[in-house]
Design a protein around this nucleic acid. Structure first.
Length: 572
RNA sequence: GCGCCCUUAGCUCAGCCGGAUAGAGCAUCGGACUUCUAAUCCGACGGUCGGGGGUUCGAAUCCCUCAGGGCGCGCCA
């Protein structure tokens, strides 16, 4: 592990043990980035009271026992300012460059089930759905990179009463026309047309209702039509996934329909064990700690009074499957924040049932709502809808415009524009913390300046350009790295933090941490680029060192962007 | 009524396991291209961290309270 923060933590702990006895050797040294040094250790301040000694005295004691590659000084009320030696930083950066994995250990081999994307085929789909897909895919990639076994679960909304209406509408407009419309991403219009007839046409309404019955009974002709509807819809989903470079495939589909035969068993099991009880004719679980309007226990309804099942039942069956069949160690739900209460009750109910053992971690990665420019929930009512494919097309088109006078041939230009446009859209979703709300804004999303995907892509293009101009390959740049200029030092130090950043993304489910890290790295590189000539360095050893720094930066940027799921063009 | 989340620079957002003078991008203003891609860089401007109280040597960060906003709360998924 090359991360300076971990190295320093270990060394300061050793000093603590040496100075104050072994009982203090496991104290958290509170290593933090510092504006006065590379890092600072704040442990002396917190420890002073317990030791009943002056903080500065404690700090001095630690400093006296501290052995690490750098210099320490006591500062202010008792901070330890830690400055690493150039030689150590250079050595670590060299190790990172030589390391296939860039200082990211293959830490764990847990089975992680990630539930993400999950578009509903029977509901409007809008730009908000991009976010769960993009964030989920980045998390999946991060887990795989650190060695976890990932099972993607695309929990499609592909079953339930709305499908009676949708199947009837499919028949009304004809199979060929329906399939064409669905494949083209007009599912929203399809749904709305069906809905309208359902609400206003008594005859259609009756047909839709009886169609639900034949669907539930899995009558062959109805199932054929349902498959036709779903297949066309999935082809559209796949089109969006491929365009975005999302790793989901048909193998990852585990929709609601998959669990339809398990629902009765879920209810029977829970009722037989007294975990679920009849309330107002419905079968409900009352997990402790959840109260409703009048302080009454809040029900988690698993069977409606009419005998039908809701998504609570399906979700319980899903947990069972993921634990028992998929052998999950950790289950991650990348789902909108509006589902928060439902998921809390789901988890609590599953724990009650014993279907979610204590050794299986479960978490809800809350995805913030997409807001319109009015600051309210972004919803596709009348007219306001932005089609997903149109949005992506526009992103690519805008990226292409910037490339106008670069002199690339059309094919190359299209390829670059695709990667830059998609990168811009995805980075916009990833760079903000996942639980914060998101004001949908074409211009900001597609802006190609600032803390954006294109900025990071551009940094890699400039590095590649150095090697191309010099007729060199990044893989041949092996150093050794030496640090003379402050910009070289800052860049090298920044490189060392990659491993712990990826670690944080995995443990905290926060891809935006990686965005922030990569942005800092790109900035550190461009600062270096401005003041440190690489190819025309003053001497050969400096040139070799700077080439090595450039190569290391390139590899970390590329690897980081790959974890985020952002493709990178060779030139821009 | 109950529960969860949010309120940080003109705008969009980081920071929130308590640490020194609260950061970044955009916007605005001023600079830098005969030099490896200027989709860049450097500098300046800009904040009672929603209000109040508390804990602490120290609070944007933890606790309480108030205000404003969002979301959810039995038969839609």
């Amino acid at each position: 592990m090359t991360d300076p923060q971990l190295v320093l933590a270990e060394r300061v702990q050793q000093a603590l043990g040496a100075a104050f006895g072994p009982e203090h050797a496991s104290e958290d040294p509170l290593i933090r980035p510092s504006q006065f040094a590379d890092y600072q250790a704040n442990v002396a301040l917190s420890l002073a009271k317990r030791l009943r000694r002056a903080p500065r005295e404690v700090a001095a004691e630690i400093a006296a026992h501290l052995d690490f590659p750098g210099t320490v000084e006591v500062s202010g009320p008792g901070f330890l300012n830690l400055t690493l030696s150039d030689e150590w930083i250079a050595g670590q950066a060299g190790d990172l460059l030589a390391d296939e994995r860039l200082g990211v250990p293959v830490s764990a081999s847990k089975t992680v089930v990630v539930d993400y994307s999950a578009p509903n085929a029977a509901k409007e789909m809008h730009v908000g759905h991009l976010r769960t897909t993009v964030v989920g895919d980045a998390l999946v990639r991060a887990h795989e990179y650190v060695g976890n076994k990932v099972v993607r679960q695309n929990h499609l909304g592909d079953w339930g009463t709305p499908f009676g209406m949708l199947v009837e509408h499919l028949l009304d407009i004809g199979e060929t026309a329906a399939v064409a419309q669905l494949e083209a991403g007009e599912g929203n219009a399809f749904y709305q047309a069906a809905r309208h007839k359902f609400d206003t046409d008594p005859d259609f309404n009756a047909r839709a209702r009886s169609r639900v019955v034949t669907l539930q009974a899995e009558e062959p002709e109805t199932m054929r039509l349902w498959h036709m509807f779903m297949d066309a819809t999935v082809r559209y989903f796949n089109k969006v996934y491929r365009l975005l470079g999302v790793t989901l495939t048909d193998d990852d589909i585990a929709g609601e329909s998959m669990y339809r035969t398990a629902l009765a068993q879920v209810c029977d099991d829970l009722q037989a064990r007294g975990i679920a009880v009849i309330s107002d004719g419905a079968l409900c679980v009352f997990p402790p700690g959840f109260t409703g309007r009048e302080g009454q226990p809040l029900p988690f309804m698993i069977r409606k009074s009419d005998g039908g099942y809701g998504y609570a039942t399906t979700d319980l069956a899903t947990i069972r499957y993921r634990v028992e069949e998929l052998k999950a160690d950790r289950i991650i739900y990348v789902i909108g924040v509006t589902q928060s209460l439902h998921l809390q009750m789901l988890f609590a109910s599953a724990r009650m049932a014993g279907w979610l053992p204590d050794n299986v971690e479960v978490e809800h990665v809350q995805i913030g709502s997409v807001l319109g420019s009015d600051g309210k929930m972004f919803k596709t009512r009348s007219g306001e809808s932005v089609k997903l494919l149109d949005l992506l097309d526009e992103a690519v088109e805008r990226a292409g415009q910037v490339l106008e006078d670069r002199g690339y041939d059309p094919a190359l230009r299209t390829e670059i524009a695709n990667k830059v446009g998609m990168g811009a859209v995805k980075y916009a979703d990833l760079s903000v913390s996942h639980d914060s709300e998101y004001v949908f804004d074409f211009d900001r999303m597609l802006a190609l300046t600032g803390n954006t995907g294109p900025y990071l892509q551009y940094a890699t293009a400039r590095i590649r350009s150095i090697f191309r101009t010099g007729g060199l390959a990044p893989a041949d740049a092996t150093g050794p790295i030496t640090l003379g200029h402050p910009a070289e030092r800052a860049l090298a130090l920044q490189l060392l933090g990659f491993g712990s950043t990826v670690d944080t993304v995995v443990s905290q489910s926060e891809p935006h941490r990686l965005c922030a890290y990569l942005f800092d790295l790109a900035q550190a590189f461009t600062a270096f680029y401005e003041v440190c000539p690489v190819l025309k360095a003053e001497d050969e050893s400096t040139r070799r060192s700077r080439l090595a720094l450039s190569a290391a930066t390139l590899r970390v940027l590329l690897q980081g962007l790959e974890v985020l799921g952002i493709e990178v063009p060779d030139r821009m």
